[in-house]
């Protein structure tokens, strides 16, 4: 792929505090990280070590208290909400642990939502792409089912298709298989990595699952707010 090995994501010296007053905790203590296109990264570590916090900072869902974040060479750590939102729309796809589908909408609608916001495709093109992505994750026959009519594994596959909708350069996944059985875990992980590699996307996933971590290109263990 033309994008292979291009630096998609970089952070340097990230600090993040959570809580207030006496409950204030220094969660990230100067974390630095890089992710390149076409590579799959696993961030592992015990609960509370700061994995998810780091992922939300990298995904521009949260603001760091110190340090820098670059997305495709653009400094985002100090940018305003609109620039961060635009960057999320264009460059980042998320997969959350609990699927986070809009359950009142069909699988097709869920996958089309990011495309609608980006506004690059016509309605017909969006429908076609959503069908293609849902077929890629094995749900070509269930495109019109509501979120509530899909199983947990199917919902997570829809979430993967949705994350890929705008062809982002970065896929961030927070425990994407954490809520699935072994069979579905493998299925979702394979899908995520295969499609990401095909499209030259950097995949950063947070996981507790050592088998999943072992299958990634890079594994970065964390402890007490730092990579070890």
């Amino acid at each position: 792929m033309a994008f292979t090995n291009e630096l998609a994501l970089r952070c340097d010296g990230l600090h993040r505090y959570l809580g207030q007053d006496d409950a204030r905790v220094h969660v990230l203590k100067g974390v630095s990280f890089e992710a390149r296109r076409g590579e799959v990264y696993a961030i592992v570590g015990p609960s509370g070590c700061g994995k998810s916090t780091l992922l939300y900072l990298l995904g521009l869902l949260d603001r760091p208290d110190g340090g820098e974040i670059e997305i495709n060479g653009q400094m985002m750590s100090t940018s305003d909400d609109i620039a961060r939102t635009d960057a999320r729309c264009e460059h980042i796809g998320f997969v959350f642990q609990f699927h986070f589908l809009m359950l009142e909408f069909s699988a097709l609608d869920n996958v089309m939502m990011p495309m609608r916001k980006l506004g690059r495709l016509s309605q017909q093109e969006m429908v076609e792409r959503a069908h293609y992505l849902l077929s890629s994750v094995g749900l070509g026959e269930k495109t019109h089912r509501l979120g509530t009519q899909l199983s947990g594994g199917e919902q997570q596959r829809v979430a993967v298709a949705r994350a890929l909708a705008n062809q982002p350069s970065i896929i961030l996944a927070d425990e994407p298989t954490g809520n699935l059985d072994v069979k579905n875990s493998g299925l979702v992980f394979d899908l995520l990595t295969r499609l990401a590699k095909e499209n030259g996307q950097a995949v950063v996933l947070v996981t507790h699952n050592p088998e999943i971590a072992a299958r990634c290109d890079f594994t970065r263990p964390m402890r007490d707010g730092l990579f070890v």
Binding site: D81, T85, R88, C89, E90, L101, M113
Partner: peptide
């Protein structure tokens, strides 16, 4: 709130 977070994570503005 969860749906709001999803939409915001996809790039929907305030």
């Amino acid at each position: 709130t969860k749906d709001i977070a999803i939409l915001r994570s996809m790039g929907y503005e305030r």
